[in-house]
């Protein structure tokens, strides 16, 4: 079996999804299996974890590309194997119903179906998540946030749900709540370097929304520290260095304009740290610029072992660097 089928398809680019879904009919035929009558069937093993993972991936890819027939075939196979009661299968069936619903009324029906399941078995988290996703997709964001806070109340260690909640709050511009949710994610998974970077980004956004002054300075330095942590957890992390470069450049300006007396004094009781010194920020900025330049150079050239960066991120990093040099030239 090709290992490409095990690649999680949810966030792949359309081209990958298309090739995956085009494999659907041939793969289905190749998996068609014969089975012996009951006692003998115990001696034959014609299934593996890979097989069902591949089935689910192809199912999702087919749904995405609009190939409903193939998707239905795979869904039926999964249902036959794991039963209708299986949580994961229930969620997949719901996903199929959502994708194939044409009218608002049909979507309403899917929603009602979810709610019926939840009345009987409120602990089916897969369905609770689907319900939130459907609410969000229908634009009922407030309801989605309500359902999701309820969900994380029941299961506070569900990092995925906290992360979705952060994203929902962010889409509403509620930065403080989004920051809180992301911090909850980090409590569950403290080593997730991408979430550290994401938190840095959200804090940076919130700093942008604030007026220039001590509050903004505090947010900027907090954001800078988050990016530093993400780099500490992951060498040559493009996103982390990008954020570090951005925040340190802003901080340099802010530190120079804000007077010493205006800066909020550090409060060790509340765990606040004093804003960093100008020298430290300058050094960090130099490090970030040098590292970004190195990553862009090696990544664009596609050197051995440096070919994994996404092309759009590399372009963005180059633009950031160019902006920096223009300012110096002026």
């Amino acid at each position: 079996m090709s290992l490409a089928l095990l690649e999680p398809p949810t966030n792949a680019n359309p081209q990958t999804a298309l090739t995956l879904s085009q494999k659907a009919p041939t793969f289905y035929k190749s998996q068609a299996s014969w089975s012996l009558p009951y006692p003998l069937s115990l001696f034959v093993n014609n299934e593996s974890q890979e097989k069902w993972q591949a089935y689910e991936n192809i199912f999702l890819a087919c749904l995405r590309t609009g190939d409903n027939q193939s998707a239905y075939l795979y869904l039926e196979e999964l249902t036959d194997r794991f039963g209708k009661e299986n949580e994961r299968v229930t969620a997949l069936r719901g996903l199929y119903a959502e994708a194939t619903a044409n009218t608002a009324k049909e979507l309403e029906y899917v929603m009602k179906h979810y709610e019926e399941i939840l009345v009987e078995a409120p602990s089916v988290f897969a369905i609770r998540k689907r319900r939130v996703a459907l609410l969000r997709s229908l634009g009922r964001t407030a309801e989605a946030i309500g359902a999701l806070t309820n969900l994380v109340d029941t299961s506070p260690t569900d990092a995925e749900a906290w992360s979705e909640l952060a994203d929902l709050y962010l889409s509403q511009g509620s930065y403080d709540q989004a920051i809180f949710s992301l911090e909850e994610v980090l409590l569950v998974m403290p080593n997730a370097w991408n979430i550290h970077a994401k938190l840095g980004e959200v804090i940076y956004l919130s700093a942008n929304a604030k007026e220039a002054g001590p509050e903004q300075l505090k947010a900027l330095s907090e954001s800078m520290r988050r990016f530093c942590r993400s780099i500490e957890l992951c060498d040559d992390y493009l996103r982390g260095y990008y954020g570090l470069q951005l925040t340190t450049s802003r901080l340099l300006g802010a530190l120079q304009t804000t007077k010493k007396s205006q800066q909020v004094a550090s409060d060790p009781v509340a765990g606040d740290l004093a804003p960093p010194s100008i020298d430290a920020v300058k050094k960090l900025n130099e490090v970030a610029t040098a590292k970004l330049a190195e990553i862009v150079r090696k990544g664009t050239a596609g050197e051995k072992g440096w070919d994994g960066y996404s092309a759009s991120e590399l372009i963005a990093a180059r633009e950031l660097l160019d902006r920096g040099t223009q300012q110096i030239q002026r």
């Binding site: 999680p8 996703a133 995925e160 749900a161 997730a192 991408n194 979430i195 440096w306």
Partner: peptide, 30 residues
């Protein structure tokens, strides 16, 4: 992060990229 080779999937549950990427893709809320 750096290299594609390191991210290659070598089997069920082996290999693959950043294990925390799912926190930002959130397949459960697709």
């Amino acid at each position: 992060e750096r290299s594609k080779d390191a991210r290659q999937i070598k089997g069920f549950g082996q290999g693959g990229g950043n294990p925390y990427a799912a926190l930002e893709e959130r397949p459960g809320f697709l």
